[in-house]
Design a protein around this nucleic acid. Structure first.
Lengths: 248, 248
DNA sequence: GCGCAACTTTGACCCAGATCAAGACCGCGT
DNA sequence: ACGCGGTCTTGATCTGGGTCAAAGTTGCGC
């Protein structure tokens, strides 16, 4: 999730953002054909659960369009988002039979899936697929650890700025920037989902977003449409180095 | 880090906890021989830095004995531990040339290292090594995400109990349990290091440990020697299911 | 156009944990 | 034995963010 690497690889093919090549940039045509055979699409509506933690998971795949979240929930209902799945992000745990997290679509969602056991069989026969997956998993691990710093040591304001800068950065390669170099995007998450990502309450999220708006760090149109006039200012607010920071 | 899988595999060989087999349980003798050729040991004293974040890292390896931490630090000095390396844990990022975190020995430390480029070459030729590393990385990703829940949503008391139960569980397979089934271990971390792991201050760590002692959840002898009379009680305090919880 | 439900904002107050400060407890080197 | 530095505990106070409450906004179905 949230890494540049899989994104750039996935841009090779127009039909489907994972489109085999996000998994494997070097596959030969017959391997691509075998992937094609075990491929299928799944569509979900906003709010639908893709899979529950603990359920048997007989596929791997990746996000074609829309946004999904990975969350963990304690018995008393406290929940923590542990990952955000944007288009081209990979989902699935080769070698594991059960899902470890709830996966929920927060917008309408299309996924490109591969049946798990033939995929694993192909992985065994095609070594560089495992290597590619290792790289992607290392990227996710980095992102998870960056997020541990955010959760453990940043203030509410810094947390919000960190989340906005991740989305802005990630969206920047998809969305347009205005003539003035502003970054513009729509928040794909409710205040509550942001709170669950950041380890805050939704009220605090709302207050801090208002504060950032008042201070001119961001501009808001409606509740979701965000303009970032000065990205380095936002990164500064996030506590990262202004010149790129941790996600550079 | 902190997973049962690599631990159990590593018990196959007595000479060195990683001993090739932690990397690869199915290697043939000639592959083990090649690993042997590129293997070397490194020793560090308590407090020594193994590698700084951003530095070139030309090895991979694993912990033979002792304990190390992975930490990230912000410019203003706030630090967050993102991983705890116990014996048999793997260190290194195949395919990446630079370290992403500071690695610091918190006790005297022995590591078993492999030179990186021949290791990667061997990995290319021996597909199941990449698969094994993928599994280990997925384990680390799970542990990191579990920790996100701890950092984002648990109270100070629950955080302490979570850390103690991880160490207890992990140490249980190494250390002895007393006749009464008590789990006994020495804390391998200072209060400050615990605070950095948990996103707390060292004072709060100290207070909560005192509170858990007063409430009979743990017993303390000196500052570091811990006895857990009732593991399920500790897991309950951690906010996990009493019957095993998230690390079952 | 109205009403309802989901989402969001804002205010008032409170509390868990941070901060500041003072000692206590070691182990170690001289 | 002593002093010293590192580690740990405990107390007093402060505050960022949580909690509770109320009202504003938006969109959708009828």
């Amino acid at each position: 999730m949230l890494n540049e690497r899989s994104l750039s690889v996935s841009q090779e093919c127009a039909e489907c953002p994972i489109r085999h090549r996000a998994v494997c940039a070097r596959c030969e045509s017959d391997e691509l054909e075998r992937l094609e055979e075990i491929k299928y699409y799944r569509k979900f509506e906003a709010g639908q659960t893709v899979i529950w933690s603990g359920d048997r998971m007989d596929f791997v795949g990746s996000v074609v369009s829309g946004i999904a979240t990975l969350t963990q929930t304690m018995e008393d209902g406290r929940t923590q988002m542990v990952g955000l799945l944007l288009p081209s992000d990979f989902v699935g745990r080769p070698g594991r039979s059960n899902a470890a997290y709830d996966v929920v679509a927060t917008t309408d969602l299309v996924m490109c899936c591969f049946r798990k056991s033939p995929f694993e069989e192909l992985m065994r026969q095609t070594p560089h697929i495992a290597q590619r997956l290792l790289e992607m998993t290392l990227d996710e691990l980095d992102a998870a650890r960056e997020w541990m710093l955010v959760l453990g040591r940043k203030t509410a304001r810094e947390k919000i700025a960190s989340l906005l800068s991740i989305i802005a950065r990630r969206d920047a390669s998809i969305n347009m920037t205005t003539a003035h170099g502003n970054i513009v995007f729509d928040l794909p998450l409710t205040r509550e989902a942001m709170a669950d990502y950041l380890g805050l309450t939704l009220e605090t999220v709302s207050r801090q977003i208002s504060a950032l708006r008042k201070d001119g760090v961001i501009e808001l149109e409606g509740k979701r449409h965000v303009t970032v006039p000065d990205m380095s200012r936002l990164l500064e607010e996030a506590g990262d180095d202004a010149d790129g920071g941790v996600f550079a």
